[in-house]
């Protein structure tokens, strides 16, 4: 995944930028034709978004949606990496719990939306629960993969120099697996926002989901498009932040080693 983006030469940068520009130009051109209600011209969407942003109406809902996404993300991150560590460390655990995890991963979690609402009520609890189900698997699986990837020689070395098993977990396994955990976190941060928006649209209508539905209900389609674009931008920012955190941690680890 990172290999695609690793070597950034000026030529590549220009091509990537050109591809992005083409997208917005096509959007603008198609929007100008007025053929689709859902696609107002890009410039119109931008000025609408600027208007909503300066009005301050977006601040509260943005914080609310982010709180849901972040809570679910943190819970999924902690539970997922702990379970992944257990699965990675203990083969017996992996072989007994692994099939269950696989089955749960393959099960479309969206079908539980109606019953999550029934069990957890139509509030933040059910929203966060949905986010956790969206996020936990990529953290868990990547952590388990990272723990299993620790070269066997490291364990042998630890044994030879008399490091206790618990210490080996903290000094060897966790630092080694951390980059994998971060890949999982980076994947799941996108899912966290998707989960939060899903929850706010389908479970308990609130915050950004509520704003979008209100705009749609009032036939304010430009505003709806602006909000959708804004939510997409939020997703990009969140992934970017985790990516930055990942590089920072990787730098610290390299410095420590």
């Amino acid at each position: 995944m990172t290999a695609v983006l690793s070597k950034v030469s000026p030529g590549r940068l220009v091509r990537v930028a050109a591809a992005i520009v083409v997208f917005f130009v096509v959007w603008e051109a198609y929007g100008r034709t007025g053929k689709a209600l859902a696609v107002p011209p890009f410039t119109e969407v931008c000025s609408e978004l600027a208007g909503v942003l300066t009005s301050g109406d977006l601040l509260g809902p943005t914080l609310g949606t982010t709180a849901v996404a972040l809570s679910g993300f943190v819970i999924a991150g902690v539970l997922g990496s702990l379970l992944g560590l257990l699965i990675g460390l203990f083969p017996i655990f992996r072989e007994v719990v692994g099939p269950w995890v696989n089955a749960a991963y393959a099960t479309p979690m969206t079908m539980f939306i109606p019953i999550i609402g029934m069990y957890f009520g139509l509030g933040m609890g059910s929203q966060v629960f949905l986010v956790v189900t969206f996020c936990i698997f990529s953290v868990l699986m990547n952590t388990a993969e990272g723990v299993q990837a620790v070269p066997i020689q490291y364990y042998e070395l630890a044994k030879t120099i008399g490091v206790s098993k618990l210490a080996a977990v903290f000094r060897i396994v966790i630092p080694f697996a951390l980059p994998y955990v971060f890949v999982g976190l980076r994947i799941s941060v996108a899912s966290a926002f998707a989960g939060a928006i899903t929850a706010e649209l389908l479970l308990a209508t609130d915050d950004l989901g509520l704003m979008m539905m209100t705009a749609s209900g009032n036939f304010q389609f430009v505003k709806l498009a602006a909000l959708t674009f804004y939510v997409a931008l939020l997703g990009f920012v969140a992934v970017g932040l985790v990516y930055a955190l990942e590089r920072w941690v990787a730098g610290r680890l390299r410095a420590a080693a």
Binding site: A190, I197, L201, F236
Partner: peptide, 15 residues
């Protein structure tokens, strides 16, 4: 991949 795709639900239904 990174954009929260469920956010497109209200918009796409228009089309």
């Amino acid at each position: 991949y990174m954009a929260p795709r469920p956010a497109l639900l209200p918009l796409l239904i228009l089309t």
